[in-house]
Design a protein around this nucleic acid. Sequence first.
DNA 1: AATGCTCGCAACCGCGTGTGA
DNA 2: ATCACACGCGGTTGCGAGCAT
Length: 232
Amino acid sequence: MGRKPCCQKVGLKKGAWTAEEDDKLKNFILTNGQCCWRALPKLAGLLRCGKSCRLRWINYLRPDLKRGLLSEDEEKIIIDLHAKLGNRWSKIASHLPGRTDNDIKNHWNTHIKKKLRNMGIDPLSSNPLPPTTTPPLPLQEQIQYPMVGQEPSSDLVDQNKDSETSVQSTIREGKDEDKNIASSPVIEVGIDEVQVIEPHEILDPSSPSFSYICEDLQFSPTFDYSDILMSI
DNA sequence: AATGCTCGCAACCGCGTGTGA
DNA sequence: ATCACACGCGGTTGCGAGCAT
């Protein structure tokens, strides 16, 4: 049974939104509220797919959106939550009022990933990367380097091959965490050219972001993180 | 000034999930 | 229990802006 297209695509516009379309969509939703997305384009007089309208509203037009760069605090929260939740961007976004999953996903892929690598942290697993003080090992040898709390696996091989695009393992991790969410975030501070986020900053129970995270991840602010710190 | 390259953001696509018939 | 539909999510891509040569 083949999947039907999400909407009748013939005659529908794609690509960048014009100011006029934005106005139509915004005015319609502000007047009528968010009704069913599928019917909305017709009602609002837009030649767009409902999905496209939804995305435009959520990612760009919503009045409560925060624009601009993410703050350092927000970044820290994202890093913490990503270590716990994996690539579940909408869950992560729900912790950051005014930010969208798309924002966070983009920011992660363009900024945070790079930053973490420079800090010697594997952005996919939040585990320390193999030390880089010695000359880089040939690929096969790198693969055999054991990661903290992780068996060398075919996933790991993929990550080493192409860590930019190998996200499938993270998705699996994320889904598995639905059942077993208590994997410890293990953060290492490594050799860096960029600003270093100290472990105590990430795992500081007295910081506002820490209690915020605890609240939603359902572990207590008195959570015993000494094991985590010991492993750093 | 022209061209090529890189980066970041906005938007699209396909799949998973929830819900009602 | 099954199916169809709508919505939501995450991965990927396309394009424009800025920068380097």
